[in-house]
């Protein structure tokens, strides 16, 4: 493991991309940063731009408009960029499977590293997912 990647595990910066969710996962993600759960004590911060971020947190099922934007966001991100899909929609499109405006799940657009299912996942589940991501970066199984 290179020094750069090792340093990444100490402080992950996350960029939050909402690709037509119902807002609930987004609120739970923000909730993770507020006093009760407060992941900032682990060095995890929300970044304002995807160019500053190490993790792209994606919620919702991409539609025709956001699909292209998501591709662009991933292309703009500095490497390495890890992708976390939060919520049932991002993981597998759940009840929007038959919708005319949701052509694909997130992992058909960009590669996904960690899936956090749930509708919405609890903040504890999101933190557990991030811990798994850090383990994955470190090369543990």
């Amino acid at each position: 493991m290179s020094i750069k990647i090792n340093i990444l595990t100490k402080s992950l910066w996350a960029y939050h991309a909402a690709t037509s969710p119902c807002n609930n996962c987004d609120i739970e993600i923000l909730d993770v940063f507020t006093p009760r759960h407060d992941v900032e004590r682990f060095g995890i911060v929300l970044a304002g731009s995807v160019r500053h971020a190490d993790v792209l947190v994606v919620t919702g099922v991409p539609n025709f408009k956001t699909k292209e934007r998501l591709k662009k966001l991933y292309a703009q991100a500095a490497r390495p960029c890890f992708v976390v899909a939060v919520g049932g929609c991002a993981c597998g499109r759940i009840m929007f499977r038959d919708s005319y405006n949701s052509p694909c799940a997130v992992d058909e657009v960009i590669p996904v590293d960690v899936y956090i299912p749930g509708c919405p996942p609890k903040p504890e589940a999101i933190i557990a997912g991030i811990v798994k991501l850090i383990d994955k970066i470190k090369g543990k199984k």
Partner: peptide, 26 residues
């Protein structure tokens, strides 16, 4: 953010629609 919920709801029965419209907004 358009997901076609009105159209989806026409393909679900009355009990299922309550769950679907819940997902309009969190």
């Amino acid at each position: 953010m358009h997901r076609g919920i009105e159209e989806l709801s026409e393909h679900k029965h009355y009990d299922q629609v309550a769950f679907l419209v819940e997902r309009i907004c969190g």
